[in-house]
Computed example of a mutant assay.
Amino acid sequence: MPKKSFPSEATPVVVQEHIQMWGHAIRAQRMLLRLTAAQLASRIGVSVPTVARLEKGDPGVGVGSYLGALFALGLNSVATPVLNPDLWQTAANKRVRPTRAESGDELGYF
Protein backbone atom coordinates (compact mmCIF):
# COMPACT_ATOMS: atom_id res chain seq x y z
CA MET A 1 0.00 0.00 0.00
CA PRO A 2 1.53 3.37 -0.96
CA LYS A 3 2.21 5.94 1.70
CA LYS A 4 -0.24 8.77 2.09
CA SER A 5 1.14 12.08 0.94
CA PHE A 6 0.37 15.10 3.04
CA PRO A 7 -0.65 18.37 1.43
CA SER A 8 1.98 21.08 1.71
CA GLU A 9 -0.53 23.19 3.67
CA ALA A 10 -0.29 20.65 6.52
CA THR A 11 3.45 21.28 6.87
CA PRO A 12 4.43 24.49 8.69
CA VAL A 13 6.16 27.07 6.51
CA VAL A 14 9.35 27.01 8.59
CA VAL A 15 9.55 23.23 8.20
CA GLN A 16 8.96 23.52 4.44
CA GLU A 17 11.78 26.05 4.18
CA HIS A 18 14.20 23.80 6.05
CA ILE A 19 13.27 20.78 3.93
CA GLN A 20 13.81 22.83 0.77
CA MET A 21 17.20 24.01 2.09
CA TRP A 22 18.14 20.39 2.71
CA GLY A 23 17.03 19.49 -0.82
CA HIS A 24 19.09 22.28 -2.39
CA ALA A 25 22.11 21.32 -0.29
CA ILE A 26 21.76 17.66 -1.32
CA ARG A 27 21.59 18.54 -5.01
CA ALA A 28 24.45 21.04 -4.87
CA GLN A 29 26.73 18.63 -3.01
CA ARG A 30 25.83 15.73 -5.30
CA MET A 31 26.68 17.84 -8.33
CA LEU A 32 29.90 19.07 -6.71
CA LEU A 33 30.96 15.48 -6.03
CA ARG A 34 29.92 14.53 -9.58
CA LEU A 35 27.61 11.78 -8.44
CA THR A 36 24.64 10.68 -10.47
CA ALA A 37 21.22 10.41 -8.86
CA ALA A 38 21.48 6.63 -9.32
CA GLN A 39 24.77 6.51 -7.40
CA LEU A 40 23.33 8.53 -4.51
CA ALA A 41 20.18 6.42 -4.54
CA SER A 42 22.20 3.20 -4.19
CA ARG A 43 24.28 4.71 -1.36
CA ILE A 44 21.24 5.59 0.73
CA GLY A 45 18.99 2.71 -0.33
CA VAL A 46 16.23 4.59 -2.12
CA SER A 47 15.03 4.85 -5.73
CA VAL A 48 16.14 7.46 -8.25
CA PRO A 49 12.69 9.12 -8.23
CA THR A 50 13.00 9.46 -4.44
CA VAL A 51 16.34 11.25 -4.89
CA ALA A 52 14.60 13.63 -7.31
CA ARG A 53 11.90 14.27 -4.68
CA LEU A 54 14.59 14.82 -2.03
CA GLU A 55 16.30 17.42 -4.16
CA LYS A 56 13.00 19.23 -4.75
CA GLY A 57 12.33 19.40 -1.02
CA ASP A 58 9.25 17.20 -1.01
CA PRO A 59 7.91 16.99 2.58
CA GLY A 60 6.39 13.58 1.82
CA VAL A 61 9.82 11.93 1.69
CA GLY A 62 10.84 10.32 4.97
CA VAL A 63 13.23 12.19 7.21
CA GLY A 64 15.47 9.12 7.24
CA SER A 65 16.02 9.52 3.51
CA TYR A 66 16.95 13.19 3.92
CA LEU A 67 19.34 12.47 6.77
CA GLY A 68 20.82 9.49 4.93
CA ALA A 69 21.51 11.65 1.89
CA LEU A 70 23.02 14.46 3.96
CA PHE A 71 25.33 12.08 5.79
CA ALA A 72 26.26 10.16 2.62
CA LEU A 73 27.30 13.44 1.02
CA GLY A 74 29.30 14.61 4.03
CA LEU A 75 26.84 17.31 5.04
CA ASN A 76 26.66 16.21 8.68
CA SER A 77 26.69 19.75 10.05
CA VAL A 78 23.56 20.67 8.06
CA ALA A 79 21.60 17.86 9.73
CA THR A 80 22.93 18.24 13.26
CA PRO A 81 20.82 20.51 15.45
CA VAL A 82 22.37 22.77 18.04
CA LEU A 83 20.99 21.69 21.39
CA ASN A 84 20.88 23.77 24.54
CA PRO A 85 22.45 21.57 27.25
CA ASP A 86 20.36 23.30 29.93
CA LEU A 87 17.21 21.78 28.44
CA TRP A 88 18.44 18.20 28.71
CA GLN A 89 18.83 16.09 31.79
CA THR A 90 21.08 13.09 32.06
CA ALA A 91 19.38 9.74 32.22
CA ALA A 92 20.63 9.31 35.79
CA ASN A 93 18.78 12.44 36.94
CA LYS A 94 15.51 11.59 35.24
CA ARG A 95 13.11 9.03 36.71
CA VAL A 96 11.32 7.21 33.92
CA ARG A 97 8.78 5.17 35.91
CA PRO A 98 6.66 6.44 38.76
CA THR A 99 7.30 5.03 42.20
CA ARG A 100 4.85 2.59 43.70
CA ALA A 101 3.31 5.37 45.81
CA GLU A 102 2.84 7.60 42.75
CA SER A 103 1.23 4.86 40.66
CA GLY A 104 -1.53 4.02 43.13
CA ASP A 105 -0.32 0.42 43.40
CA GLU A 106 -0.34 0.49 47.19
CA LEU A 107 -4.14 0.63 46.99
CA GLY A 108 -4.28 -2.55 44.93
CA TYR A 109 -5.56 -0.86 41.77
CA PHE A 110 -2.78 -2.10 39.49
Rank of each mutant, 00 (worst) to 15 (best):
Lys94Cys: 12
Glu9Val: 08
Ala38Glu: 10
Asn93Tyr: 06
Gly68Leu: 10
Ala28His: 05
Asp86Trp: 14
Gln39Lys: 07
Arg95Met: 07
Leu70Ala: 02
Phe6Ala: 07
Leu75Ile: 00
Ala10Pro: 10
Pro12Phe: 04
Pro85Ala: 02
Arg95Gly: 08
Arg34Ile: 01
Val51Cys: 14
Ile26Thr: 05
Ala79His: 00
Ala41Thr: 01
Leu73Gly: 00
Ala10Met: 09
Asp58Glu: 05
Ala91Ile: 13
Val96Asp: 03
Leu75Cys: 03
Ala28Pro: 10
Ser8Leu: 12
Ser8His: 13
Arg53Met: 13
Arg34Ala: 08
Ser47Asp: 05
Pro59Met: 08
Val82Tyr: 05
Lys56Ala: 15
Asp86Glu: 13
Val14Gly: 07
Pro2Ala: 14
Lys4Asp: 14
Arg100Ile: 00
Arg43Pro: 10
Pro12Ile: 08
Ser47His: 03
Val96His: 11
Gly64Leu: 11
Leu67Thr: 05
Leu107Lys: 15
Gln89Pro: 05
Gly62Ile: 11
Thr90His: 06
Ser5Ile: 15
Gly108Cys: 15
Ala91Val: 14
Thr90Val: 12
Thr36Met: 09
Leu75Ala: 01
Lys4Asn: 12
Ala72Thr: 01
Ala91Asn: 12
Gly64Trp: 11
Asp86Leu: 13
Pro2His: 14
Pro2Lys: 15
Ala41Gly: 01
Gly74Ile: 01
Pro49Leu: 12
Leu83Lys: 04
Asp105Arg: 14
Pro12Leu: 05
Leu54Pro: 03
Leu67Asn: 02
Ala28Tyr: 07
Arg100Glu: 00
Pro2Gln: 12
Arg27Tyr: 07
Lys94Pro: 06
Arg97Tyr: 13
Leu33Lys: 14
Thr11Ile: 15
Met31Asp: 07
Trp88Ala: 09
Glu102Phe: 02
Pro12Arg: 07
Gly108Arg: 11
Ala101Tyr: 02
Val78Lys: 03
Ile44Trp: 01
Ala52Ile: 12
Ile19Ser: 05
Pro98His: 03
Ile19Ala: 06
Leu83Ala: 04
Pro85Lys: 04
Pro81Ile: 00
Thr99Leu: 03
Asp105Gly: 09
Ala38Trp: 03
Gly74His: 02
Leu32Phe: 09
Asn84Gly: 04
Gln16His: 04
Lys56Asp: 14
Leu35Tyr: 02
Ile19Val: 14
Pro85Val: 02
Glu102Pro: 12
Pro2Tyr: 15
Ser5Leu: 15
Glu55Pro: 12
Ala28Lys: 08
Val51Asn: 08
Arg53Cys: 13
Pro81Glu: 00
Ala52Leu: 07
Gly62Phe: 13
Ser65Glu: 06
Ser8Asn: 10
Leu32Gly: 03
Gly104Tyr: 01
Ala10Thr: 13
Gly62Glu: 14
Leu40Gly: 06
Ser103Lys: 03
Ser65Gly: 11
Gln29Glu: 14
Pro7Phe: 05
